[in-house]
């Protein structure tokens, strides 16, 4: 087990290293000189050289790289060139919105995937199964931003039952007292049910749009796992003991089918947390994704660069956590096989 953990951690460190090298190299390969960009087209070449020296761009690459990652891991992410605030502050302000959306979307995605996978496998009803599989195909084939627009047209402009692209709360609503800065949780903590309901309604459409393709992936995976596991002899044995159908399914098929899904769930959560630039844009969601979208438009490199690296690290960390969790709950990983005759 110690070995397993060591291998996983080492793998994660390697992945983060690869991501940093990649992000670093991309920034160096891109055309354009940052100093020139900062100083503008009218600056003298002496001024550009001086600034290059000042920000270290005349140093050898490995020195630059070292400074780059040590700054990154110290949380020293530089300053936004467009509004002068520190990148850490900007991202910090936006992160709760993104995290709230990611967690919400993750929860509904997982629930829907588990529910529908169960529905399509538990009773052998070919029709239900076909509908679920068809839905998952659609989810696979539809680009999330397109689905986002579709959802807005249907639920906001036609049916008027859910709020439009106005961010996390309606214009009249005030944000609840900041504790976690996730509005739904803060609203509950403050006992403001109205605000909670308002925040929840604003989460639904972006949550659906963000989750749809991952949902399709998860439901297919879980369905296949469930089908495979429910044909295992140990399910027959469990039924042979006298267990009811559902009990045998719940106690023996579900845990076994769920284990491989855990890894996939980790990937999905990592993806959600890394944020969706386009979904946030469509819904005017004031999260990190919107910040990055604006930064790309304004060529605000410090923000973009930090975001790329940050999402890579986040992704790796979530998956490391899943791997470790896996090692804890799967006895075949946790306990080595003992050769016994």
């Amino acid at each position: 087990m110690g070995r397993v953990i060591a291998m996983r951690v080492l793998g994660s460190v390697g992945a983060v290293f690869g991501a940093t090298v990649l992000a670093f190299m991309i920034m160096r390969v891109l055309p354009g000189n940052p100093a020139r960009l900062i100083l503008g087209p009218l600056a003298t070449s002496q001024a550009v050289t001086a600034l290059n020296h000042h920000i270290g761009l005349d140093q050898p690459l490995y020195t630059q790289y070292w400074r780059y990652i040590s700054d990154f891991f110290q949380g020293n992410w530089g300053y936004s060139y467009s509004d002068g605030a520190s990148v850490r502050k900007l991202i910090g302000e936006r992160a709760p919105a993104t995290i709230e959306l990611a967690l919400f979307s993750f929860v509904i995605t997982m629930l829907a995937a588990v529910g529908l996978a169960l529905l399509s496998t538990y009773r052998h009803r070919p029709i239900t199964d076909r509908i679920v599989r068809g839905a998952s195909y659609l989810g696979f084939g539809t680009p999330p931003f397109f689905l986002a627009l579709l959802l807005l047209i249907v639920f906001f402009s036609t049916l008027h039952i859910l709020p439009g692209p106005e961010g996390r709360l309606g214009v009249q609503a005030a944000a609840p007292a900041a504790v976690t800065r996730m509005y739904t949780i803060d609203a509950l903590l403050a006992g403001e049910l109205g605000t909670f309901w308002e925040a929840l309604k604003h989460l639904i459409l972006p949550g659906l749009a963000l989750g749809i393709s991952s949902f399709s992936f998860l439901v297919r995976l879980l369905r296949a796992n469930l089908l495979e596991v429910s044909r295992e002899p140990f399910i027959t044995v469990a039924r042979g003991k006298g267990l009811r159908r559902w009990t045998a399914f719940r106690r023996h098929a579900l845990p076994n089918a769920f284990l491989p899904t855990l890894t996939a769930g980790g990937l999905v959560l990592g993806e959600f947390l890394a944020g969706s630039v386009l979904i946030e844009r469509v819904f005017n969601w004031p999260g990190v994704g919107s910040l990055v979208f604006d930064a790309i438009v304004k060529q605000d490199y410090a923000i973009v660069q930090t975001f790329i690296l940050l999402s890579a690290v986040m992704f790796v960390l979530v998956n490391l956590a899943v791997d470790l969790l896996y090692a804890v709950i799967d006895p075949r990983v946790r306990i080595p096989t003992v050769a016994t005759a």
Binding site: E232, F234, G240, N256
Partner: peptide, 18 residues
């Protein structure tokens, strides 16, 4: 399981691994 019970062929898959 009470009045009539079953033993299957393959012992490696007859028990829940987790």
């Amino acid at each position: 399981g009470k009045e009539i019970a079953l033993v299957l062929q393959d012992p490696s898959s007859a028990l829940d691994p987790v």
